[in-house]
Design a protein around this nucleic acid. Structure first.
Length: 490
RNA sequence: GGCGGCGUAGCCAAGUGGCUAAGGCAGUGGUCUGCAAAACCAUUAUUCAGCGGUUCGACUCCGCUCGCCGCCUCCA
């Protein structure tokens, strides 16, 4: 059983290969830090968080590097607007990013380099490229000679001629060739600068990742990840720089995740159709966002909508309700003599949970399928729980308890079921209750009155009370141990 | 225009050529209930955008057509 991953470079799903046995070196392009993060950024961070957790669960050692781009045109422009330095602005939004990540329960990568802390490393690579005749200085800028790298286009599957034909590339007078891209930008007055052999300036975007990945992971490493929109030009250019400078293969496997869309359009700042992570977390529990993100495989587009979030809410609650039902079972209630309720088929199904989960996740981290397997297992458990006798067989109790702990362990890879189930459901109810602003004492009084009516078989008054409460979104459930109430979801 | 991807039930979504086309939401019928609700059970695609082809056999591979999305400029 091997983990198979879709590799953008080959266009195929292939078995995971690592340079060093059992050790995955992973580099992921992080954010450009100049604003609050939106759900698309959350998807990226969550996807790789899940991948790293799964690899570790499968006993790989993982070295996970994710950078911050903290110098860039947009940062400079925004800082100017806000009357602060680029560094202050970038640092501020890195702090905000961490607040979001922490709320989402996303682990920190092992190494989180900032671009501006690695200027010497970038200058070094640029120097190497110039020495090899793969880059040239023009004015105060330095450009990469795309024609010097024969493999240019191998990741994004395009050839230079086609791209040259595209009219959308602005021709810069300084460039020898419109396709050449910038490695070092001479600075304009008032911009942050660093000294270099080519004068004061700042690095281009692509060189950052070549420099930082080489420093922390070496000239060749196992997996490089990012959003699909980074394939071209960013990752293509990284390959050109790194392989050009190092004369070694850059990355074995390229992983690219799909976008979050709204009404089937890519969420982006320019379209103004984005929602920030904190927008979402103000109305949804972080695990609901996680459940939603993982409800489709990471490479597919994921359309955000209220109804999709409601679906995710219901799904997550369904899992928690099963966990709560098992949690409240007294582990010592079991009767050693009682006849077991679970059939062999059911036992087999419950017992197969972990293996089925692994099969799904081995198949390019198919979290959607994995969630389906959770539900399938929960269905079997619920069916048996619903007919559990008051003195159940000890073997049944043990199986339920084991299943719950396995389910929690596996769900944790997606960051789900981390909260105590009973607490989660109680908080959910409280939150709904807060929203409708109703007096709990009043509810209990009415329930008591209705209880009396029911004893007296005064059905009309009893039903009237129930309808009154329902009008206020309070749902009554008559069970063997009395009447319970809950807040109905709209 | 070039390149990449997608099109599976009312909606979301798995499916690594051959086993009953997972699972969730919604719907319908039932058990339970004074009636309900919740829960549980059952049921919901002779068919996988369309048309051809390869194959003993295709949702799965190939070709074409239609529709949608993305990249080709910064972008997760």
């Amino acid at each position: 059983m091997t983990i198979r991953i879709y590799n953008t470079l080959s266009g195929k799903r292939e078995p995971l290969k690592t340079l060093k046995s059992g050790h995955v070196k992973l580099y992921v392009c992080g954010i450009t830090s100049y604003d609050y993060c939106h759900i698309g950024h959350a998807r990226s961070a969550l996807a790789f968080d899940m991948i790293v957790r799964y690899l570790r669960y499968r006993d790989y050692k993982v070295t996970y590097v994710r950078n911050f781009t903290d110098i860039d045109d947009k940062i400079i422009a925004r800082a100017r607007q806000q009357n602060c330095s680029s560094d202050e602005l970038a640092s501020r939004f890195i702090d905000e990013f961490y607040l979001d990540m922490d709320k989402l329960g996303i682990d920190r990568p092992d190494i989180e380099p900032r671009a501006t802390d690695h200027i010497p490393e970038m200058i070094e690579i640029i120097t190497e490229l110039i020495d090899k005749g793969m880059a040239y200085q023009a004015g105060n800028d330095v450009y990469y000679i795309v024609d010097s790298f024969p493999d240019y286009g191998k990741l994004s599957r395009r050839n230079i001629e086609d791209m040259r034909a595209g009219a959308r590339i602005a021709v810069n007078e300084q460039k020898h060739n419109p396709m050449d891209f910038v490695l070092w930008k001479g600075s304009k007055p008032g911009e942050p600068t660093w000294e270099s052999p080519w004068g004061a300036g700042r690095p281009g975007w692509h060189i950052e990742c070549s420099a930082m990945s080489r420093k922390y992971l070496g000239t060749t490493f196992d997996i490089h990840g990012g959003g699909k929109d980074l394939i071209f030009p960013h990752h293509e250019n990284e390959i050109a720089q790194s392989e050009g400078a190092n004369d070694k293969p850059f990355v074995t496997t390229w992983i690219h995740h799909g976008f979050v869309t709204i009404r089937d359009e890519k969420m982006s700042k320019s379209l103004g159709n984005f929602l920030t992570i904190r927008d979402i977390l103000s109305s949804y529990h972080p695990e609901i966002l996680r459940f939603f993100i993982f409800s489709t495989q990471y490479r597919n587009p994921l359309d955000f909508s209220e109804s999709a979030m409601k679906n995710a809410t219901l799904g997550l609650e369904k899992l928690y309700e099963c966990m709560a039902a098992i949690d409240v079972l007294d582990p010592d209630i079991g009767d050693e003599q009682a006849k077991a309720l679970l059939t062999d088929v059911d036992k087999q199904k419950i017992g197969a949970l972990e293996e089925r989960f692994q099969n799904a996740m081995d198949n390019d981290f198919n979290t959607a399928q994995a969630q389906g397997i959770f539900f399938d297992t929960v269905k079997t458990i619920n069916r048996n729980l619903s007919i559990l006798s008051s003195s159940p067989a000890q073997s049944d109790i043990d199986i339920f308890k084991n299943a719950a702990s396995t389910l929690k362990k596996l769900a944790d890879i997606m960051g789900l079921l981390r909260v105590d189930a009973v607490t989660f459901l109680a908080e959910k109810n409280q939150k709904l209750l807060d929203k409708i602003n109703i007096d709990e004492k009043m509810i209990n009084l009415l329930i008591a009155e209705r209880e009396q009516c029911r004893i007296e078989k005064n059905w009309s008054r009893s039903d009237q009370i129930r309808d009154e409460l329902l009008a206020k979104n309070i749902e009554l459930k008559d069970g063997p141990s009395g009447t319970e109430w809950s807040v109905k979801r709209n």
